[in-house]
């Protein structure tokens, strides 16, 4: 039975806590959050103890096997570094760090101390994306050529609006588009160059919206266009891949298997439609199950900490391109650790 300490009881922390409760070989032994009530709520029906500080938790808990970091991005490095020496395994939410240097330092420190580091790039575990990967492998659409992705919805609401603070979240390109950068890299290999546009800071912060369009050229020749939005209503995501022999197209907004509308109580109250795509096991659960399996059985994960680093590298190139107004060419081959672009 692996003993897990969960840091953060926000949106992702809740999702992870729920997943751990349903996994047989894991015991959630502690939950840390400054807001005790939030952590308390998650601890229901578990033996998990609730703490308001990390220090208190590690002082009172024995034999922590896994520390799972579901904190805002700007805190990832601090808590990964603190967790080394306490637990042999760390699971960290995406993006791994705020930049390539942070991510490189975390990976180096974990390697040096024989700590396994897993990063929650959950899109790899979404069945629709797994299916797309297998169709590509099968050659169903020949050689991929032009790829379009979309992701986003309304501006995310969270603790102290940390998503709205670029210094804390890295903004839309690092926080949200990182999913597509990672998936595209998994499908089409290393990136040659990136050109990107995003709303300027005044428009984005003033209206509490953000929007970015990123063009990525891969070494394989594939041209990809990624749309990231915190300007729309209702979360959705999609990907279209046009190849030499066909097209793969998926959009969660157009393919909702279940739509629930409750009758508005007031006459003027328009019913809100809540789309769902129910699965026996959520992608988040599958992700954590896989990481636990990797820990227990010494397997390599399907998405590595280096993949997480490379995804950040693409995001940083996109951000640099937004700043300079020019395309950014990525250094070829494997990055050296901590190599800033």
């Amino acid at each position: 039975m692996l003993k897990v300490l969960l840091l953060g009881a926000g949106t992702m922390g809740s999702v992870h806590a729920r997943a751990y409760k349903s996994l047989g070989n894991v015991e959630l032994i502690g939950i840390v959050d400054r807001q005790e009530a939030k952590a308390g709520k998650l601890s229901a029906n578990t033996s998990a103890k609730v703490f308001t500080s990390y220090e208190e938790a590690v002082a009172k808990l024995n034999a922590i096997d896994v520390i799972d970091i579901c904190l805002p991005t700007h805190l990832h490095k601090e808590y990964v570094m603190k967790s080394i020496g306490i637990a042999r395994n760390i699971i960290c939410e995406k993006p791994l760090g705020l930049n390539v240097t942070e991510a490189g330092d975390m990976i180096a420190a974990c390697e040096k101390n024989n700590v396994r580091l897993f990063v929650g790039h959950v899109v790899r575990f979404f069945p629709e994306y797994k299916r797309i990967q297998s169709l590509l492998k099968k050659g169903s659409i020949g050689t991929p050529a032009v790829v379009r992705t979309t992701r986003g919805g309304a501006f995310p609401r969270a603790w102290k609006n940390w998503y709205g603070d670029f210094e804390k979240s890295g903004g839309l390109i690092l926080d949200l588009l990182i999913h597509d950068f990672d998936f595209l890299r998994a499908c089409f290999g290393n990136v040659e160059r990136v050109y990107a546009k995003k709303l300027n800071r005044e428009d984005a912060v003033g209206e509490n919206i953000d929007y970015a369009l990123v063009t990525i050229r891969f070494h394989s020749g594939v041209i990809a266009h990624a749309e990231g939005t915190w300007a729309h209503q209702g979360f959705s995501y999609g990907i279209e891949i046009a190849g030499t022999k066909g097209i793969i197209d998926y959009n969660s907004a157009k393919n909702a298997p279940l739509k629930h509308r409750s009758k508005g109580k007031k006459m003027d109250g328009a019913a809100v439609e809540v789309p769902e795509s129910p699965l026996a096991s959520s992608p988040y659960r599958d992700e954590l199950k896989h990481f636990i399996d990797c820990i227990v059985n010494g397997k390599d994960p399907v998405v590595t900490a280096y993949d997480a680093l490379h995804a950040i590298e693409i995001a940083m190139a996109a951000l640099t391109s937004c700043e300079t107004g020019q395309p950014v060419t990525l250094s070829t081959g494997e990055l050296t650790r901590g190599n800033e672009i």
């Binding site: 050529a145 032009v146 063009t215 020749g221």
Partner: peptide, 16 residues
Amino acid sequence: EIDHLIADEKIDDCGI
């Protein structure tokens, strides 16, 4: 970003 990635003929067929 422009290339010929789909058809055999050497003329651009992909562009963003």
